[in-house]
Design a protein around this nucleic acid. Structure first.
Length: 660
DNA sequence: GAAGCGTTATACTAT
DNA sequence: ATAACGCTTC
């Protein structure tokens, strides 16, 4: 692996903790790989190296590159996401963490449980009282920033005394409910691990865990939040930290990311060194010029100008459309032309701000038979029909899993909330899932007349028989649910195919529990299982997921008001600046060609519903690309129909913002 | 009283 | 696309 002098200095660093502060494309991941290779060549046991990333995408990329560039010895490096690592450790020491039997709640489960708890305190709709989404957000943020819930909502200053009292009760009830049901949500995974690591009475355990590692490599340090910092802090010394980060790419404030972890590195870490990397190897200069310009417009001073080692190249393009459908059609057509010209689809990436923005695009891709993978967005495990199946599996595993039981029970005729809850109350009081299933006929009998009670029980009995063969269990469950689901879902054929993928995945696991846990923490993409092989397919990706990756040609869609910056962030200057960084991250993914597309605002975008509809930045309509310097960008207009009402366009649009 | 059904509201980003 | 809501049916 070729490295420049600065990169070499970083990779070979031998003086304690190190922070590599490096701009986009300067080779952060490269130096992590090189660092691992260097350590191994110096005789460090790969097992004693831990590599942590923030997103699953970054983790899988790191693992892949370690394999291909360091060789087989890299297989023993422990690499993964913070969540994956923490859970793994807790599984190894179940007694210390008190987590013998547990079910992990994904975001949907969490929302549902919070909703159930909330309804116990808010019977009638209360105007202005936070919905379950907001409450979940509040609890999650306070956990990740390690601030007490009470203190946090007080500090926010947006709630009245009575509301705060109620929120506090809901929070307490949610925590109690999780304990009762053996539930652990994503935030708990980090919190429980961090807490034990720092508990004086748990020193034995924390020494045992920290003692496993000599070197901890951390990717995207600017995105770590306080709880993740506590984890790193608990693992270091004697282990050495090797962190890479870039404050201009900090885009996870909503998760409590704290870039003090970067700015105050040397004060927080005694004997720490900061090493900058300056030269960009990824993109050609015209792409960097535009990215540099974008950052320079910020009131914040990033003290950053990316200089390309690759020299000049194609100027970024900005293409404007009069409708989202035309935008999508043009992008797809442009890709087809490039593909026919010999470019591989896997060298192209389409970047979007939010997952739902690919609707038109996906339709156009399917129409043109272009295979793609969507990273970010709805996962297979989150789709309704798969959740039905998982509910059956979960009910068979734990009598206490009320979310699983509730969903399964309500699949059957004449079973709704009330019946389900009464069954759950009785079932969860029993000792085991086996006993629950044994007693179920009696319980159902006393719950009232349920026409398909026998069938309901049979589904669980069949499942029990195949507890240790997930493949068989899922095959049976799919067949069992088939008649019920056929009635429920109209596009049944399409949904049914998802089960085939699920069955394939199940073959890799020895137990249902292991199967469920793996895919809760690392859900499969709804469009394609990229791990099966490396076919030539197009990548659709959210900007957040794309951080740390690169592509030859990058399309950034909907670079327009309401999207960059997002209409939800307009009140807050800090939030707007985070939006700027998001666009910056998007632009700096492209190596050779950067194409920005947008839909003209007078035709009804921004395309939001409800309260956020049509909102624009204070002082009038604007987005980051409204006043781009013409010498940096090639502008093009596409698909505009000349209209006799041309002059009225903006006025009509103003009065009909919902037209889209 | 509980379930079922049609209508309406809601949706950023990650683990 | 799915959840929540309100009205009708069992």
């Amino acid at each position: 692996m070729k490295l420049n002098p600065d990169q070499t200095k970083a990779a070979h660093h031998d003086g304690g903790h190190l922070l590599v502060l490096a701009g986009a494309g300067t080779g952060k991941t490269r130096t992590i790989i090189a660092r691992a290779a260097h350590l191994i060549s110096q005789g460090v046991d790969p097992k004693r190296i831990l590599a942590l990333t923030f997103t699953r995408r970054a983790a899988s990329e790191l693992v892949g590159r370690l394999k291909s560039q360091v060789g087989p010895s890299a297989d023993n490096i422990r690499a993964g996401t913070f969540h994956g690592f923490c859970l793994n450790m807790m599984r190894h020491f179940p007694k210390a963490f008190g987590l013998d039997q547990l079910t992990i709640l994904d975001r949907d489960d969490q929302l549902e449980l919070v909703g159930m708890v909330r309804s116990g305190f808010v019977q009638k709709p209360e105007k202005g009282f936070p919905k379950r989404e907001r409450i979940t957000e509040l609890m999650s943020y306070s956990r990740n920033t390690n601030i007490g819930f009470e203190e946090y909502i007080k500090k926010l200053g947006e709630f009245q005394e009575a509301e705060m009292a109620k929120l506090k009760s809901i929070h307490r009830a949610y925590e109690a409910r999780k304990r009762l049901r053996n539930y652990v949500d994503y935030d708990d995974i980090l919190y429980l691990f961090a807490r034990t690591l720092h508990m004086p009475s748990m020193q034995d355990v924390s020494r045992m865990i920290a003692g496993q590692f000599d070197h901890i490599l951390v990717d995207e340090m600017q995105d770590t939040n306080p709880i993740q910092w506590l984890i790193l802090d608990g693992l270091r010394d004697p282990a050495k930290l090797y962190c890479v980060g870039d404050d201009a790419q900090s885009i996870y404030a909503f998760r409590g990311a704290d870039f003090e972890n970067v700015h105050s590195f040397t004060t927080r870490v005694k004997g720490g060194t900061v090493l900058p990397l300056i030269t960009n190897y990824r993109s050609t200069q015209p792409i960097l010029d535009l990215a540099n310009w974008l950052l320079a417009q910020s009131p914040l001073n990033y003290e950053k100008r990316l200089e390309s080692a690759r020299g000049t190249g194609m100027k970024p393009k900005l293409v404007e459309f009069d409708s989202p459908a035309k935008e999508a059609a043009w992008v797809v057509q442009d890709i087809i032309e490039k593909h026919e010209g010999g470019m591989k689809l896997k060298e192209i990436m389409i970047l979007v701000r939010a997952a739902w923005m690919t609707r038109d695009l996906e339709a156009a891709l399917i129409e043109n038979n272009i295979e793609y993978e969507f990273i970010g967005g709805t996962k297979l495990m989150q789709t309704a029909h798969v959740k039905d199946l998982l509910a059956l599996l979960r009910s068979g595993i734990s009598q206490r899993d009320e979310l699983g039981w509730s969903r399964y029970l309500r699949l059957f005729n004449r079973v709704g909330d009330v019946t389900a809850n009464s069954v759950i109350d009785q079932v969860s009081a029993l000792k085991s899932a086996e006993q629950a299933i044994e007693m179920l006929p009696d319980i159902l009998g006393s719950a009232g007349k349920i026409p398909d009670a026998e069938q309901l029980v049979q589904g669980l009995v069949d499942l029990q028989k195949n507890r240790n063969s997930p493949e068989k269990a899922i095959k049976n469950a799919v067949a069992f649910l088939n008649p019920i689901q056929k009635k429920r879902y109209d596009n049944w054929q399409k949904r049914y195919r998802d089960y085939e993928l699920l069955i394939t995945l199940a073959k890799r696991h020895k137990s249902l529990e292991a199967f469920l846990e793996t895919y809760t923490l690392d859900p499969v993409s709804a469009t394609f299982d990229s791990r099966s092989d490396d076919k030539d397919i197009l990548t659709l990706i959210t900007v957040h997921s794309a951080k740390g990756t690169e592509c030859k040609v990058g399309y950034v869609m909907k670079v327009q008001a309401g999207v960059y910056p997002h209409s939800r962030s307009l009140e807050d200057l800090a939030a707007i600046e985070e939006e700027r960084r998001i666009l910056y991250v998007a632009m700096t993914r492209a190596k050779d060609e950067l194409i920005l597309t947008r839909v003209a605002e007078r035709f009804g975008s921004p395309i939001f519903f409800g309260a956020s509809s049509g909102r624009v930045a204070p002082g009038g309509t604007s987005d980051f690309m409204t006043e781009y310097p013409p010498e940096l960008v090639d502008y093009e207009m596409q698909g505009f129909q000349p209209s006799p009402f041309e002059d009225l366009g903006p006025i009509i649009a103003r009065f009909r913002p919902e037209d889209n």
